[in-house]
Structure formats: structure tokens, C-alpha cells
Design a protein around this nucleic acid. Structure first.
Ligand SMILES: [Zn+2]
Ligand SMILES: [Zn+2]
Ligand SMILES: [Zn+2]
Ligand SMILES: [Zn+2]
Lengths: 137, 137
DNA sequence: AAGCGATATGTTATGTTATTACGCTTGCGA
DNA sequence: TCGCAAGCGTAATAACATAACATATCGCTT
């Protein structure tokens, strides 16, 4: 059930390898995790991974999870989201759920407007236990 | 202007030093920034700082900003918040604004309830430019 | 086809953030 | 006074990220 993501045709080799690694992983990967999985494909240095990740994140094909220092492929395979995205991260199994909420976006926008704060980027990450892991416990 | 924070009486020496450093800083500090400022007070190793930070964060006297790998003193000096806290971080001057929003909390709670996800911790960080910095530009 | 700029690459070294492991000390109640 | 819990000190190491520099590749213009 894992993947079957759209893989854009104009990625470079390294970007394609990195996105492939993320797509096949059931949980977020750190840059070094990715590097380890791609040594067989010729990658040797962290920078090769970080550079690819930068591009992928920029294009919305992958996301950085700040509270984990790790990365996931975008779960919204065909129309990578533009607005605020929230992530729910299970501490048990590592599964990441990605969702958007217009009301939250509007509340943040309201706060920013009142304060005169210009928002450039928002990160929102919920840590906890997913339903499956709670069940299993 | 800067501080005038309540400093709980039951802190250990290291915790007091670390919280003092955070209180006197106009912007978030990394653990190593803190260490550098406290070498004169006898601190030598990162762990001394990390241990103090753990306790301070646990008690809500300080917060960790995940998107910065840095820490701030809680701005809500007398009644350290319990619920979800959002941080607005200015990329220009480093100022951090801390606020709570019940509607956002309720939306997240709703999502979690629908998904059967048990929330343990939420981080919410807005990066951008504060009013003062926009003015100055 | 030659020239050029923008983008991507490879490699080494280094910088920054965080933790593990171990042992000692102190305070405090059983 | 024994035992435990919390705190402390130190050294070593792990994990995450970037700087600096040299080449290479591609698309575009001439
Ligand atoms: Zn996405
Ligand atoms: Zn789970
Ligand atoms: Zn606070
Ligand atoms: Zn500012």
C-alpha cells in the first residue's frame, strides 16, 4: 500500500533517487538515512542529499519535519499543496499524516494581520500516537 | 524593556544560570550560544546546558523552537501556559511572539478526535517579518 | 558550431547541535 | 545509616548541516 506516487519527469538523477527513497519509506528519513540507502546508487556525500532535498522541498514534492530533523515525500501526490500544512506524526510507528485546515489558516492570518506580521512560512507538527498504535497497545 | 521575569526560587544553580541567559537575550539562543555566555560562570560542557534546558522546558519556563534549534524564555512570565502555544519568529530581528488560540486548538482537537490520534505535543511556528522590521525596510 | 550563463555535481573539510556513558555528590526519607 | 532519587562534571561520540572549491552539463544566443 505504501506508494505509487507521481514522479515528475524533470527531476535530476539525484533528486529522483532521493524522492524515490522517501517514497519507499514508511516513515520520515533523515538526510543521513537517505544517504545510507543511496550509497549503492553512487551517492557519497551529505551535500548531494541536502541539495536534492532543497529542490524537492522547494517544489513541494517533499516536506521537512522540523521537530524530527527529517523529511517525508508529500502525501498529496498529484497536487502538492500551497497553503499551510499540518503534520501529525506518530511516535509509535513513525507514520505521518498531512492535512490542511482553512480555519486554522484563517486564524493565523488574522493574528498576523492584527500584529502587522508578514508570514513567510508556517510549520505545524502534532506529535502523538496514531489510532493503529493506540489499538495495538 | 527587555525582561523582569519571575525567577522561581527552587531552580538549581545551572537552571538559574541558563534561564538568566535566556531572559537577558533579545532573541532565541542555541544551547551552544548559552554555553558560551556562561563559561564565565563555570559551565563547561553542552550537557550542563541541555540538562538545565530540559527541566526548564518541562516546567514551561522556557520553550524550544524546533524550526531554529534554539530556545527562548517563556514570555508569559507569571502563568506559564499549558495548552497549545504558537510562536511568531521574526527573521529580521529574531524577536519571538508567543500566543495561544483556542479556535486553533479546537480545530486540531477535532481532527485528532476524528482520526483517533492521541496528541501529546504540538509545535506551531510562524516564520516571517515583524511589524518593526517591515517598517524599517 | 562556439561561446556563455545558469544549474547541477563531486569531494573534502568543517561547523553546529545533541546524546551516551560513566562516576561522584547531595539531600532526604525509611 | 542505608538506599534512592536528582543533580552535577567530564569525556567521548553521534547526528545534523554547511562552506569552499573545482568540474561538468545543459540550454540558449550568436
Ligand atoms: Zn504535501
Ligand atoms: Zn502509529
Ligand atoms: Zn510561554
Ligand atoms: Zn523583526
Amino acid at each position: 500500500m505504501a506508494h505509487e506516487h507521481a514522479m515528475p519527469a524533470d527531476l535530476t538523477r539525484n533528486q529522483e533517487l532521493v524522492l524515490g527513497a522517501l517514497n519507499h519509506a514508511p516513515a520520515p528519513l533523515s538526510a543521513y538515512d537517505i544517504l545510507d540507502r543511496l550509497r549503492g546508487d553512487g551517492l557519497r556525500a551529505p551535500l548531494q542529499v541536502y541539495r536534492a532535498l532543497d529542490k524537492l522541498v522547494e517544489r513541494g514534492l517533499a516536506h521537512r519535519l522540523e521537530s524530527l530533523n527529517a523529511f517525508v515525500a508529500c502525501a498529496d501526490a498529484h497536487c502538492h499543496r500551497k497553503g499551510l500544512i499540518a503534520f501529525a506524526i506518530c511516535e509509535g510507528c513513525g507514520k505521518v499524516d498531512e492535512f490542511a485546515d482553512a480555519v486554522i489558516e484563517e486564524r493565523l492570518g488574522g493574528w498576523a494581520a492584527r500584529e502587522g506580521f508578514k508570514v513567510e512560512r508556517t510549520t505545524m507538527e502534532i506529535r502523538g500516537k496514531c489510532a493503529a498504535c493506540l489499538q495495538a497497545a
